[in-house]
Simulated scan of single mutants.
Amino acid sequence: MNSTIEQQHNYQRVASAIAFLSEHQQAQPSLSALAAHVGVSESHLQRIFTEWAGVSPKQFLQFLTKQSAKRLLRTSTVMDSALACGLSGSGRLHDLMIKTERVTPGEYRNRGEGLQIYYGCCPSAFGGCFIAVNKRGVCKLAFFDTAEDEAGLLTELASEWSAAELVRDNEKAAQWYQAMFAPKPDKERQEITVLLKGSEFQMKVWEALLAIPVGEVCSYQQLAGAMGSPSSTRAVASAIARNNIAYLIPCHRVIRGTGEFSQYRWGARRKQAMLLWESGDGYRT
């Protein structure tokens, strides 16, 4: 089986396990109960969960607690330091270098007139992956579970770039996914350009997200404070919700100050899975 497709199947099983553990956290369900819910043997679930996430189901139960999340939030000084060092415009994601580029006022007005955008779907470590790229860089990256979700993402893309020519190419989408996510030695890592389209404030928020280190989280309040706008928490949350570049612009690393993971544009369970993936060794394999 193709390794990426196998990753997607394992993600679906792990996502089901995450949902079950989240809903029954107080009962501290056993591995046997969890395996019965997912529909696989205990040994198989233990293996794929640990391989995918880098932690065991039991360790994930500890990760779920608010106190664990609150302990993670105490590391916000790391992000503050990164922002202070001028890292808000670019950052390292796994073995990638992420570079942001902004849509010009003219491009914003003409909504992509004369621009050709290639898009497509492929399996990924987090379910179905929708990718759109133009000559400037990645202009949309999203995850989905159903054909209806996929159709909705295409409608979004057509609305965001209403005057552009949209060309479907699933084979290229799979190649782009490999370029963005496949692990490589440091000397072979690529610089990925993401094309951001939004207000000046939204741009600042999205670029600030790149300063949050892999495996760390911050609260909406901490992000606003690190940007020098401590009273703009709601505006920061709104900008995060409008991010069109999932994972590469890591809005999944922002949680509520209470330690709760809250909602996520591409699904709260997927957000938990991403954080779990980054908390262990899964994102490096």
Rank of each mutant, 00 (worst) to 15 (best):
R234C: 06
L223K: 10
S238Q: 14
Y247D: 15
A226R: 09
V205L: 06
L196M: 01
A241Y: 04
S232W: 11
I245E: 08
V205G: 03
G198M: 04
R242K: 15
S229W: 12
M203F: 09
K204Q: 15
A239R: 02
L248P: 10
S219T: 10
P230K: 00
S219W: 08
A224L: 08
R234F: 07
Q202V: 00
L248T: 09
S219H: 07
Y220A: 12
G215S: 08
M227L: 13
A246L: 08
G215I: 08
P250F: 01
L248V: 07
P230F: 00
P230A: 00
S231T: 11
L196A: 02
A224D: 11
I240M: 02
I249A: 01
V236T: 09
Q202S: 14
V217W: 03
I240Y: 02
K197W: 01
A211T: 09
I249N: 07
V236P: 11
V217M: 12
I249S: 09
Q222N: 05
L209H: 07
K197T: 02
A224V: 07
G228N: 11
A246M: 10
W206T: 01
Y220N: 11
C218F: 03
Y247L: 15
A237L: 12
A237G: 14
G198T: 02
C251P: 11
T233F: 10
L196E: 01
I245D: 10
M227A: 09
A208D: 09
G225S: 13
S229A: 15
A239E: 00
L248W: 09
E200F: 08
V214E: 15
V214Q: 14
S238I: 09
I212E: 03
A208G: 06
V236E: 11
E200T: 13
